[in-house]
Amino acid sequence: MKKETWKELTIGTINLDAGNSVKNLTGTWRSGKKPQFIEENCIQCFFCWLYCPHSAIRVEGEEVKGINYDYCTGCGICSVECPPKEKAITMIKEEMKLAGGSTE
């Protein structure tokens, strides 16, 4: 990513590019485990969406549709809080990988 010179920066230390942190892929932090979404078990309670610290639950057309692994850090709250006996989210092993943390 090309970094601005001092002349190119907006005065007053202002960032005008609202919400551009979506380019930071926090999913690269996962180490060893990741949630797996089992759609047929999902009761659409949205607790996973509510309690995910990294906004990694995919919601499409008013329904929870799965996990966005670009952002999921593998904390596991979604799985613990998933209410049905046959959970719609379970944690599974994931091979460690080394990667950068950005789309750029």
Binding site: T26, P53, H54, S55, A56
Partner: peptide, 11 residues
């Protein structure tokens, strides 16, 4: 939005 640097499981 997503892409912030808060810890795993942060409240």
């Amino acid at each position: 939005v997503a892409g912030h640097g808060m810890c795993l499981g942060c409240g």
